[in-house]
Amino acid sequence: MYGIGLIKGLGVTLKHFIETYLDDIRWLGRRYYRDESLAERQGPHARGIFTVQYPEEKLPVPEEFRCIPFLVYEVGEDGERLYRCTSCGICSKVCPPQCIWIVRSNDPETGRPIPSPTEFFIDIDICMNCGLCAEYCPFDAIKMDHDYELASYDRLADHIYNKERLSKPVTYYESIRPMNFAFEEAARAEKEAAKEARRKAK
């Protein structure tokens, strides 16, 4: 019969409409602005309304999420920044759109390169967030950030990030990527132990 298909379609919409209210009643007042209800609403069992109430509630980003690289530094005993970066330049070589500039300087006394970047720039108007720099950095010194709320009014002033803007402490890195951090620390500890053992064997 003509019109059945249309009614079926409208029925689906009606079902979605009612489900939203059923879920509202089921969760009664706890449906929004809570982590557990957000997870429920956005998971594979989602029914009814599917909306994230940004900016009041934010969809959590997974650990691997990548948006604009940052430089990891460790805080020294006197509070100074110890950069993990040795300015080896692998990130700037592997960067597909070539948006990383690194300035390495030489020690005035010995003439040998200082294993730390003097300057570090990333043009975020070119960066394609591919994550290759973080993936191939042998010192775990450059990592992909989770902060995506970067909108600005002036790109000419703000959009070439310098070393200051890119630096973030290792504790921040630990907080956004706990699993990766633990894994890397374990690998580092293992390496250190092996080194130690070798030295003892000598």
């Binding site: 960067c95 597909p96 070539q98 500039w101 390495r104």
Partner: peptide, 15 residues
């Protein structure tokens, strides 16, 4: 060919 030489070790940030 990439990588470009101007990026490292004396990379000067410019557009």
């Amino acid at each position: 060919e990439k990588p470009f030489n101007s990026r490292w070790p004396e990379g000067k940030a410019f557009r």
